[in-house]
């Protein structure tokens, strides 16, 4: 009887720790579960806080939202690995507790200082697999951070507008997923090789990044 009660208590605690209390993700999130989204959001805000030479933070650069798109574009097996990655970061406080009071709480519930120290522990660990897990998390979030126009703008890295020349080959196939009837060019549109003027900082910024 006692054993059953202990087991039930364990299940309840596990349920509470792993599944309960996460805020609902914003509308439009399709690939990440609420708990995964919260882990990504919290980690992005710690890795990229507001202020400093690039003002945008993880939140304002919508890093977690980008992570959702990135995960959604992956194969099923990669998605499973990414889900395990988020679980590892969120709950490894049980194995590597953060410094300070109640450092064993899940990552997204720690204070910002604890979160920073906890992630630094992963980044600087002597255990290579632990560093690898952190590198994987940071890769997902960093790619999201650099997808933001404001971040790229702060570093002078916004893509430039390029008018792609129309080649003969453009008469052979349409955009991915489209039927050849949608090819919008005719032989008269073929421009041949375009200008070879080098691109530089003075060029106009790509319309999606203005």
């Amino acid at each position: 009887m006692l054993l059953w009660l202990a087991l039930l208590a364990l299940i309840a605690i596990g349920f509470r720790r792993f599944l309960v209390g996460y805020p609902a993700p914003p509308v439009g999130v399709t690939a990440l579960a609420a708990r995964e989204y919260e882990t990504a959001r919290a980690a992005a805000e710690v890795i990229y806080p507001k202020g400093g030479p690039i003002d945008a933070s993880g939140d304002t650069a919508h890093v977690a939202m980008h992570s959702d798109r990135f995960v959604g574009a992956q194969t099923r097996s990669n998605r499973i690995l990414m889900a395990l990655l988020f679980i590892a970061v969120e709950h490894a406080t049980l194995v590597f507790p953060a410094r300070g009071p109640r450092g064993w709480r899940r990552f997204s519930s720690l204070s910002p200082d604890q979160q920073l120290a906890y992630l630094q522990g992963w980044q600087q660990s002597e255990l290579a697999p632990r560093r690898l897990v952190f590198m994987s998390l940071r890769a997902i979030l960093t790619m999201g951070y650099f997808a933001d126009a404001e971040v790229l703008g702060a570093l002078g890295l916004r893509p430039r507008e390029i008018l792609s020349p129309v080649l003969e080959v453009d008469l052979l196939w349409p955009a991915v997923g489209q039927h050849p009837e949608t090819i919008r060019f005719t032989r008269a549109d073929v421009t041949g090789p375009g200008t070879s003027t080098p691109l530089g900082p003075s060029g106009s910024v790509h319309r999606d990044y203005r």
Binding site: Y48, P49, G52, P53, I54, L116, L155, L157
Partner: peptide, 13 residues
């Protein structure tokens, strides 16, 4: 990480 990382990112240009 954090502001220290941002300082390093700012070197990219």
């Amino acid at each position: 990480l954090g502001l220290e990382l941002k300082k390093n990112l700012a070197m990219i240009p």
